[in-house]
């Protein structure tokens, strides 16, 4: 499903029905996923191409937060002054864009993944995050690429004691998504700096060769990226 297409377009895949038709000067976009429907009419811009790719999983059901909370299904204990690489999963949201003369218009965002929010920290001054429960392993899993992606997470313990990591909170303002025919992936770092604190960041390197870089939604919206890193201070 992911890729760049010409107009008109008709895709039926994994319960998703997507069509884009040219009607004179206008483009009619239609999408159905279960009982959820989306429709959009674009006037006077029918010469571009359509890009469908995974986007930062923080837009649905509402754009409430730029933070993703990965809840490890089992804790990972890190030896003092050591580093290790683990693989986790993250939810995938699919973005449909119209690319026309360098201008990018977001047509639609939808997801097959579970949608849930959580609070990181306490109710007084915590941070709202998109929630995702993930297995943790040393081998990359192969989840359904329209539903879940794989994240290579490099854990670094900068402290002199054993540290147990049960979660990772990441900021969308630095996410670098890559996709191929069978995989959606990201690479991130988590440096543990204390018993309850860590810094998280992304690396702009594909997990496998020949992966294509996703068109980032935060770039498409032309938002200024100010703080791509995130500092966790309310527990690991």
């Amino acid at each position: 499903m992911y890729g760049t297409y010409d107009i008109p377009l008709n895709i039926e895949s994994e319960g998703i029905s997507l069509s884009i038709e040219q009607r004179g000067d206008a483009i009619v976009y239609r999408r159905q996923l279960g009982e959820e429907r989306a429709e959009k009419l674009l006037l006077g811009g029918g010469r571009g191409s359509i890009v469908i790719n995974p986007v930062e999983p923080l837009n649905l059901p509402r754009d409430l937060t730029p933070y993703l909370y990965l809840d490890f299904q089992r804790p990972a204990a890190l030896a003092p002054k050591s580093s290790s690489t683990v693989f986790v999963t993250f939810p995938v949201e699919i973005g449909v864009f119209l690319k026309d003369n360098g201008e990018i218009e977001t047509l639609d965002i939808f997801t097959l993944a579970r949608q849930k929010y959580t609070l990181y920290g306490d109710p007084r001054n915590g941070m709202l995050c998109r929630y995702w429960s993930t297995p943790v392993g040393t081998e990359p899993p192969r989840p359904e690429r329209l539903r879940e992606g794989v994240m290579e997470l490099k854990l670094v313990n900068a402290t002199g004691t054993w540290i147990e990591v049960t979660k990772a909170v990441l900021s969308a303002y630095g996410m670098k998504l890559y996709y191929s025919d069978g995989l959606v992936a990201m690479r991130a770092d988590m440096e543990v700096t204390g018993a309850t604190s860590a810094n998280t960041d992304f690396r702009d390197i594909p997990l496998e060769q020949h992966m294509r870089k996703s068109l980032e939604l935060y770039t498409a919206r032309k938002l200024v990226v100010l703080f791509p890193k995130f500092t966790m201070t309310d527990g690991l």
């Binding site: 059901p61 809840d71 949608q115 929010y117 959580t118 609070l119 109710p123 929630y131």
Partner: peptide
Amino acid sequence: YPFALKYP
């Protein structure tokens, strides 16, 4: 329900 928070 998505907006019923996991934590708290």
